[in-house]
Amino acid sequence: MRREYIIFIILLWILAEGCAENGVEESDLAVTPVETPVVPAEVPQAPAEIVENPENYTSNQTPVENVTVPEAEIPAEPKTVEVKIEDFAFNPDSVTISPGDTVRWTNLDLFTHKVTGPDFSSGTLRDGDSYGFTFTREGTYRYYCSIHASMEGVVIVEG
């Protein structure tokens, strides 16, 4: 009986070891991440002169005032203005944009239309089709639908 008891203990131990393993060796699980240090690039800067009061000015030093650039002088990002084609009309029929802006016409009618201007033409636009044109020069651009001449609009480009 004692021999059977020892065999039983050994079998339990083997079974416990077998259940504890999941078939993956420990070396497969141990992954050490590698960090690559990132060194920020140095930006060269001109040496700054510190002038504490006007008495310290010499003949070759000129006081500099803070200069603020008005927003009107900062070029704006180009934008896209939407014009809907619906009920045989351009909506809105007049838009004012800046040079570099785009006008995009989208046909929401069941009928085909063609946006035609002095420097651009959309080709045939079916229901859901869009056409965009980027205006680079200032001016007034009158356009119309070359299929339905009563449909007219205007793009005013001013800087």
Rank of each mutant, 00 (worst) to 15 (best):
M1A: 13
R3W: 09
E4C: 04
Y5T: 07
I7E: 15
I7M: 11
F8D: 11
I9G: 02
I9D: 08
I10T: 11
I10S: 11
I10H: 00
L11V: 08
L12E: 03
L12S: 06
L12T: 03
W13M: 13
I14Q: 08
L15I: 12
A16K: 02
A16R: 01
A16E: 01
A20L: 14
N22D: 15
G23C: 09
V24G: 06
V24F: 12
V24H: 10
E25V: 08
E26D: 15
S27N: 08
L29G: 06
V31G: 04
T32F: 12
T32S: 12
E35W: 07
A41Q: 08
A48T: 15
A48W: 05
E49D: 12
E49W: 09
I50W: 07
I50R: 13
I50Q: 11
V51G: 08
E52G: 03
E52P: 00
N53E: 13
N53I: 06
E55R: 07
Y57R: 05
N60Q: 09
Q61W: 00
T62I: 11
E65I: 03
E65N: 11
E65F: 02
N66W: 01
N66I: 05
N66T: 10
V69Q: 06
P70I: 03
E71P: 00
E71R: 00
A72K: 02
A72H: 01
I74M: 10
P78F: 13
K79R: 15
V81F: 15
V81C: 04
E82W: 04
V83S: 03
I85G: 09
I85T: 01
A89K: 15
F90N: 04
N91M: 02
N91E: 11
P92N: 09
P92Q: 10
D93R: 07
S94F: 01
V95F: 08
I97G: 11
P99A: 15
D101L: 11
V103L: 14
V103T: 14
W105I: 06
W105A: 12
L110G: 15
T112A: 12
V115P: 03
T116L: 06
T116A: 10
G117V: 06
G117K: 07
G117Q: 11
F120D: 12
S121I: 06
S122A: 04
S122N: 07
S122D: 09
G123C: 09
T124Q: 04
T124S: 12
T124E: 13
T124R: 08
R126V: 02
G128C: 02
G128V: 01
D129L: 02
D129I: 01
D129W: 05
D129Q: 06
F133D: 04
F133Y: 15
F135T: 12
F135C: 12
T136P: 00
T140P: 00
T140A: 09
Y144R: 09
C145K: 07
C145P: 02
I147W: 04
S150R: 03
E152G: 05
E152T: 14
E152P: 01
V154K: 13
I156C: 01
E158P: 00
E158A: 14
